[in-house]
Amino acid sequence: MTMTDFATRSAETSVPLLPALAERWSPRAFDAAAAVDEDKLRAALEAARWSPSANNSQPWRFIVARRGSEAFDTIVANLAGFNQVWAGSAAALVVAVAETIDAEGKERRWATYDLGQAVAHMTIQAHHDGLHTHQMGGFDAQGLREAFELGEGFIPVSITAIGVLGDADTLPSPLREREVAPRTRRALEDVVVVNA
């Protein structure tokens, strides 16, 4: 597989999709020397800001940390070991935080769903602008809550690595094999349970 093939890896979809959707994938190989383009990072966060939410509650917050900062090192220290192997090479790490309780103390039932939409918008905008992203769930949420002094009801849900695509050969063997393996998904008929 050439580096060009590795970089595009467009999905084989059953119907045509927007290029940013079909071409988006989640690499683990990031260029450890490349800084994040600040305009592109801001655009990704702006896309998240404008995503839909229940009753326009916007129950999302983001901790944005660039490689080389103390905040970045704190996030890496709270990653599960398998994510620590590669995520430190990303140009930035973004902790997605759900505000699960409103100002009156009521539960925001859809907060994590809305946060997920915001992160999806962020990743698509980043990909459109030539960045790559990889979302992670393997981390110590309580460790991040304490480190960043998040208040009650603010729950870290995911972490997104953002950066410039790197060389898959920099990854250890099991991760390198996953990096270049063919992309697969369940068939559309397997995920749509009713289509009346």
Rank of each mutant, 00 (worst) to 15 (best):
P52W: 08
L165V: 02
F148G: 07
N55I: 02
V192Q: 09
N55A: 13
S51R: 01
T2P: 02
I155F: 02
A11D: 06
E23G: 02
A120S: 10
A71T: 12
T8P: 00
D31R: 09
L171R: 04
E179I: 04
E152P: 13
R108Q: 13
L175I: 13
G153P: 09
D5C: 07
D73G: 11
T184A: 08
K106S: 14
R178K: 15
M122W: 15
L165H: 03
I155D: 08
V192T: 08
L131S: 03
L150S: 07
S26W: 01
T123S: 09
S89W: 04
A44V: 10
W25I: 01
F62H: 14
E177G: 03
S10P: 00
T170I: 04
A71N: 12
H121I: 00
G105I: 13
N78T: 04
E12N: 13
T8H: 12
N55W: 10
R28S: 05
S173G: 08
Q135T: 15
R176L: 05
T74I: 15
I124P: 00
S10G: 09
G163Q: 01
L171N: 08
A71E: 15
T160C: 14
H121M: 05
R109L: 12
A87G: 13
E23Y: 03
V64P: 05
Q58P: 00
G105S: 06
G163N: 04
P16N: 04
T184I: 03
E146W: 00
A120K: 00
G151I: 11
T170A: 09
Q58I: 00
L79A: 09
H132I: 01
H121A: 15
D167W: 07
I101Q: 11
A96D: 14
R67N: 12
W110E: 07
Q125C: 00
P174M: 06
G81K: 14
A47G: 05
R109I: 13
I75R: 01
D129M: 08
R185Y: 09
I101C: 06
H121D: 10
L144F: 11
I124L: 14
R67T: 10
A91W: 01
T184R: 12
T123M: 15
Y113M: 04
A32M: 00
S173V: 10
S69N: 10
E46R: 12
P59Y: 08
I155N: 01
P27Y: 02
S57K: 13
T4F: 01
F6V: 02
Q125A: 11
P27Q: 02
I162K: 00
T2H: 09
V64R: 07
M136P: 03
T74E: 10
T112C: 07
E38T: 04
L79V: 03
R61A: 07
A29F: 04
N83K: 14
R49D: 03
